[in-house]
Simulated assay, not measured.
Amino acid sequence: MTASPNNGVDPAPNPHATAEEVEAALKDTKLAQVLYHDWEAETYDEKWSISYDERCIDYARGRFDAVVGTDQALPYERALELGCGTGFFLLNLMQGGVAKTGSVTDLSPGMVKVALRNAEGLGLPVDGRVADAERIPYDDDTFDLVVGHAVLHHIPDVEQSLREVIRVLKPGGRFVFAGEPTTVGDFYARWLSRATWYATTNITKLGPLRGWRRPQAELDESSRAAALEAVVDIHTFDPADLEKMARSAGAVQVHAASEEFTAAMLGWPVRTFEAAVPEGKLGWNWGKFAFGGWKALSWVDENVMKRFVPKGFFYNAMITGVKPEPKEA
């Protein structure tokens, strides 16, 4: 089977979903994906502290190396990012020397728009399409590398998407997906986030702390977005199950890894607190604490916790595999 890019005009972003659209999206996960991510696109980099400098270049390259290893022949000639969001993973990997040229795809027009804008600002050779990950609109044997970050858990049929990834890869080409929630990790991350949101939004009702409270309209909008978030986050994974799925899709040299245990227990409350207080309220010292704390606990996880904590208890799962070379006749 082959697929070619559609030469039609991609749909425009819809950053202001109506109540009726949100209600319909609660019953239609793909509509929810579009509405939620269009909603978030213009503020997504700020919300998740995404940048395209040394900090995030090192982070993206670190995720790649953690699951693939450091003995790869780089750079790959042409890479595709599936579910690109604002382009965080691919653009930083390209800056980190992993790939020369790239293509970005996402179901959300808003995200593709921002990813292409980010690529242009960085001077990177990247094109993009609005596309469903279960039907990737490129021909067979097109890419040397396919990557994604925090995307597989949004896709209804993950194995079908992996089959498509194998199809568009050249023989010997590799895929790398990172940032996928484990089942155990998602459980404790959600409870920590809910507790932090509840505590922050209620404590800031008190007189002396009202200056730390976001306007109610913004809090209400965040709650509406959170309702959609519960619909767009479809899956959690066990690393071993991810490996089985990748092999079933046709991949070889499959390997899964995981990371962030204590780091996730800090990271999720920190991110939730940042989303609950007014923009600009937290200064440089807070950012230094948040990043420094995450980095220190990541070291603890890698050098201490991995010795005795099961792989499935870490928050983030990563998976890589290779498209097999054709067998000789």
Results as ranks from 00 to 15, higher is better:
E164P: 00
W39S: 10
Q72C: 13
N202R: 08
M265G: 11
I166S: 11
E243A: 05
R213A: 12
R224Y: 03
G179Q: 02
R247N: 00
M245V: 03
G172E: 05
P15F: 09
E159A: 01
M245F: 01
L297S: 04
I203Q: 00
V304P: 08
Y188N: 03
T262V: 15
Y315F: 15
V34A: 08
V277R: 04
D144S: 02
L282E: 10
A73R: 09
F89L: 07
V68L: 14
A275W: 09
L219A: 00
P109Q: 06
F187A: 13
Q160E: 14
E302T: 11
I234G: 04
V114W: 07
L192E: 05
A226D: 14
W212T: 13
T196N: 01
A240F: 10
R135I: 03
M245A: 06
W39L: 14
I50P: 07
F289H: 07
N316Q: 12
G110E: 12
R214C: 09
R117H: 09
W212A: 15
T183H: 10
E243C: 03
A99E: 08
T182N: 09
G173H: 02
E46C: 02
L93H: 04
P75A: 08
C84S: 14
A119Y: 07
S161D: 10
F177E: 01
H16N: 15
T2W: 15
T29M: 09
V9K: 15
S223C: 13
G87S: 01
I319K: 06
Y188F: 12
G172T: 06
W48E: 14
V231R: 05
N92E: 01
T196K: 00
I234V: 14
A276G: 12
V151S: 11
A178C: 08
K323H: 06
S51W: 02
R307N: 14
G69K: 02
N316Y: 04
V126F: 04
I136S: 09
Y76D: 07
P13L: 04
G179I: 13
T320M: 01
L297M: 15
V304D: 02
P278N: 12
K30V: 07
L206D: 04
S248T: 00
Y188E: 04
S4P: 11
P15T: 11
T196I: 06
E42Y: 11
V104D: 01
L116V: 07
D144Y: 07
A264D: 09
A290N: 13
W286S: 09
T200E: 00
D45T: 01
S193C: 01
R271M: 10
L31S: 05
V176K: 06
F64Y: 13
K27G: 06
F175E: 07
D71R: 08
L206V: 02
T86N: 04
P15M: 05
E259F: 09
A60V: 01
S49Y: 12
